[in-house]
Nucleic acid binder design. Structure first.
Length: 553
RNA sequence: GCGCCAGUAGCUCAGUCGGAUAGAGCGUCGGUCUACGAAACCGAAGGUCACAGGUUCGAAUCCUGUCUGGCGCGCCA
């Protein structure tokens, strides 16, 4: 049951009849495309559902329901025939009037067709990508960005109030190492024999960071980097952080991913929020001292073991900052928190949930979708990537290679729960082996026809006959509101991509069987609506996965 | 050893709160441009849905067990 779908009136009318057959029980008849299009346009298993509760023969119930459909004038003239098949399915063949009305409805709704299906509407804070600003974003970040932004767009379209947030992990050991690495490279630029720490950042981009710092400060720190003093370390770390964060956001923006807010780990430390968070946990009895360290009793909330918040040397762990951050997020008054994490962080979920629960919030408000790994295939072989050796493929390189549209479509096409291999040869292809162009081409083709501005009569009756390809196309279009709803509820933008492939296929088949220009007036009128409706839904769907809908290619 | 995710066509993957003969793209084979864009369409071949039990009118889907792969199991982040 989805507002705006041309299937909904049918479903409601059928539900009324089914309730009567069931003796007054409340029934919802779900209408879906049948397994085989030869069976009809839509099918329902409602008789089989009723058979279960009323202990009656499903086929007998179906027969009765079919009679009532006939008596009800074919559900308002929309049903041409209804037949019982198989174990008790009812197959409906719809009338030309339904198809004409459906196309018109979608055209009139335009971009709003499918929008606002969410119930109830929520204020959702979605955090994703969140990385150490110690290097450029890589392919793994790209998948998380494509997924996180896809979910955000989907939730917005479904009617939720969404905020995209990037948590900057700009504090701690990794940042210190990064700062030391930058300082060493700066020293080398000054002609010194400084060396990047063995466990530091070896990538060439660090040289670039050092060069830009040299351009700013000149040789002022020449004598302070071998070894670097505290002030020098802080400066190189801070400048490096700013540059890398700027690189990340620039690259992500080029990838069509923008954030509404940034949260800095350093800020939580500097502002005292980390200390206050730990004190709150101690006060509530959720944290305790042992062996000189401060422990978070996460086992009380389902974790397998307790976790250290403050080490015996007095320094705080990553988790301590996340306590502050998540208490902050949970306390902002929204309904739901989404943390998009990579597969290597899934062991962290129980800890985050414990933070939310210990803060007195419903732990159910926190959802943590896990994005599995993506690897690159080229020439039939896995492309080796190592962060240490600096051979990671960056987001920027990926975009330069295959383009934003292909990158986003490929990365969001597969369920985030599945580790998958991205074949660069296929993604790079400009031709027919590339799925993203298959969908875009459908959009461009429609634009091409509409640009000819074919004339149509203002008000035309439905055409006498509807082609099978038109039936398939309209039924697909009618499913869109439900696709949006399911994809949003399940945080699964890949369902949008899969739908677009189906829709494009239906359109291309229609295109080859049905002409628009030069047909009878009522046929032209109908098919123009079909074209406009299809173009609108494709454009909307592509927009939800961050891909452009070109008028020509 | 424990936890999470996965195992579906030659390859990459959809489909998983039970429904009819299990799908798509790529690849392979064969057709289709003197009519709106052939970046397209039509057709064919290709499957023990990892395996074994169970639940029921009906299981790729739910339950149990087994096998295989990825990731994780730190006073790292």
């Amino acid at each position: 049951m989805h507002a705006g779908s041309p299937i909904t009136p049918l479903s409601l009318a059928l539900s009324r009849e089914a309730s009567v057959v069931a003796g007054g029980a409340d029934v919802i008849a779900v209408l879906e495309p049948p397994a085989d299009t030869g069976f009809g346009d839509l099918a329902t298993n409602v008789a089989m559902i009723l058979a279960g509760s009323s202990r009656r023969n499903p086929r007998e119930l179906a027969d009765e329901l079919v009679q009532r459909i006939g008596a009800a004038g074919g559900l308002g003239g929309y049903v041409e025939s209804a037949v019982v098949a198989g174990p008790g399915f009812i197959n409906l063949t719809l009338s030309p009037r339904w198809f004409a009305d459906a196309a018109r409805t979608i055209v009139v709704a335009g971009d709003a067709y499918g929008r606002g299906q969410a119930e109830p509407r929520e204020r959702i804070l979605i955090e994703f990508v969140s990385a150490n600003p110690t290097g450029p974003p890589h392919v793994g970040h790209a998948r998380q960005a494509a997924y996180g932004d896809g979910v955000a767009r989907l939730l917005e379209y479904a009617g939720h109030d969404v905020t995209r947030e990037f948590y900057v992990n700009d504090w701690g050991r990794q940042m210190d190492l990064f700062g030391a690495s930058v300082a060493a490279r700066y020293g080398q630029l000054m002609g010194l024999a400084t060396e990047v720490p063995a466990d530091g950042y070896q990538g060439d981009y660090v040289v670039g960071v050092a060069e830009r710092i040299r351009d700013e400060v000149g040789d002022a720190f020449r004598d302070r980097v071998d070894p670097p003093d505290a002030e020098a370390r802080a400066l190189f770390t801070a400048l490096g952080r700013d540059m890398m964060l700027a690189t990340m956001t620039d690259e992500l923006e080029r990838f069509r991913v923008r954030f509404d807010a940034f949260a800095s780990e350093t800020t939580f430390h500097a502002g005292g929020a980390v200390t206050r968070g730990l004190e709150a946990l101690v006060r509530s009895g959720d944290a305790y001292e042992q062996d000189g360290a401060l422990w978070f009793r996460t086992t009380a909330y389902g974790d397998e073991k307790d976790r250290v918040l403050r080490r015996s040397d007095g320094s705080t762990t990553y988790l301590a900052a996340d306590v502050a951050y998540h208490l902050d997020k949970a306390g902002r008054g929204g309904d739901r928190l989404l943390d998009i994490l990579g597969a290597d962080h899934h062991g962290y979920i129980a800890r985050l949930r414990a933070v939310v629960a210990a803060g007195g919030h419903d732990p159910g408000m926190l959802e943590v979708p896990i994005v599995q790994l993506v690897s690159l295939i080229e020439g039939g072989e896995a492309r080796r990537m190592s962060k240490r050796a600096g051979t990671l493929v960056t987001l920027g390189e990926l975009v330069d290679d295959i383009g934003v549209d292909a990158a986003r479509f490929f990365l969001v096409q597969r369920s985030h729960e599945t580790a998958f291999d991205l074949d660069l040869d296929v993604a790079r292809a400009q031709g027919n082996e590339n799925p993203v162009y298959y969908v875009q081409y459908a959009h461009a083709r429609i634009a091409g026809i509409l640009m000819q501005e074919p004339a149509a009569p203002a008000a035309a009756p439905p055409p006498a006959a509807i082609d099978p390809s038109e039936r398939a196309l309209l039924i697909s279009l009618a499913r869109w509101p439900q696709v949006v709803d399911e994809a949003a509820r399940r945080r699964s933008p890949h369902r949008v991509a899969a739908f677009l492939m189906d829709l494009a296929r239906d359109f291309h088949a229609f295109y080859h069987r049905c002409r628009v220009v030069g047909e009878a007036p009522e046929v032209v009128a109908f098919r123009l609506d079909v074209l406009r409706a299809t173009r609108s839904v494709i454009a909307t769907g592509l927009g939800l996965v961050g891909v452009e809908a070109p008028d020509r290619m």
